[in-house]
Design a protein around this nucleic acid. Structure first.
Lengths: 203, 203
DNA sequence: CGTTTTTTGGCACCAGGTATCAGTATGAAC
DNA sequence: GTTCATACTGATACCTGGTGCCAAAAAACG
């Protein structure tokens, strides 16, 4: 006999709940044409929590301050900042930053941390990323804490440009490295084309 | 007699629940030193729904498709895709993508569109961004529609690496340009270090 | 056929409530 | 003092959406 029916139902169940986590067991009963006990056995086997737990988890996620402001001005917590010299920020790879299947952080989050720090370290009202040269050295994974260190290589007092080098580590492993060129507003009145990133003077 | 106690309690109750919507009536009992019946009367008067309803509402809000996936697998709508050749994606700069003050798009969104497209255009189960060389030519602003065009310059059948060039336009103005190096899984067994971006085979 | 897996039914129980009725305390009004 | 209104508390029945457990029925398999 094909055990498929059960497995198929399991797949369907997973899919249905993923599509609509608000389904009660009773509603699933109608959709899958099996008894409510079977639904519950299935959820047990598949480790799918009950409706209320699902809603609670969703509510918790949406209540999470980190997630509620999906991408704030500065990505990562800046723990050290010496303007026009260097800076350090921390960023923990969480559920919402990774691909669900692989657990690998989406590149732009890692990029965003580095970019934010590169912009923040510039001592100016407005700073704009002009260009960047970046390398993903190894993937950052769920749960890992990324430590980004930025060093201002040339503050660009003369040209309105600054070069900032950023290294991102997990532990002592480098995961990312980038060279950023940042336009700054103060030095030369209009210091060329605007970049793609604004620094709006906060922490 | 001051009716303040009741009003104060009502204020406190509202504040407590706003701060932590996960509080049950029983927990509120402890915090406000009144009976559970009083808590329930208060909630009734203040039209504060029960815990489960609160969680459900939060879950529903977070399930809102627009809000729930702030940064999905692929940023931007891919409107054309010729695997291992080229691709086009559209991305509208919305409120949540810009700095509130300047209305300028945060760089990593523009980057993310380009990066997503560069990865998507590679015809392979897993594709990882290894490095990138990017330039923000002018800022993208709120409401603008970014059109990213990706061209595979060398599909890398031999080395497990592919080079992809991406140009992003608003109208006929170029706002971003990037050269991406993408590792691909299929060609050579272990094609070197993993990059920072995974392609999980969708659309 | 017998055995195993799968499915179903039934029952007790739980949290976190709603709804309703009754009783108590307290202070102000007459 | 008595009466009345308001606030608070208690108790009970009931609801939803489950868990946990046990037993029986049904289906599939060798």
């Amino acid at each position: 006999m094909e055990r498929l029916p059960k497995r198929q139902r399991h797949q369907q169940l997973s899919r249905l709940i993923e599509e609509n986590p608000f389904l009660t067991d009773r509603e699933l009963t109608r959709l899958l044409k099996v008894s409510i006990q079977t639904i519950r056995l299935d959820r047990l086997e598949l480790a799918i929590p009950e409706l209320r737990e699902r809603l609670k988890m969703m509510a918790e996620r949406s209540y999470d301050p980190v997630r509620s402001l999906p991408l704030h001005e500065v990505i990562g917590d800046i723990v050290d900042l010496q303007l026009d010299k260097s800076g350090i920020s921390l960023f923990e790879i969480r559920e919402e930053h990774v691909f669900s299947r692989s657990g690998i952080a989406r590149g732009h989050h890692v990029f965003a941390q580095a970019n934010s720090l590169a912009v923040a370290v510039i001592n100016d009202e407005i700073a704009l990323t002009a260009s960047a040269d970046i390398r993903f050295i190894r993937p950052a994974r769920l749960g890992e804490k990324c430590i980004a260190k930025a060093y201002v290589r040339s503050s660009g007092s003369q040209k309105g440009k600054a070069k900032v080098e950023v290294f991102t580590y997990v532990g002592d492993e480098m995961v990312f490295q980038g060279n950023f060129v940042i336009y700054r507003s103060r030095m030369a009145g209009d210091a060329g084309p605007e970049g793609g990133e604004a620094h709006e003077n906060r922490g």
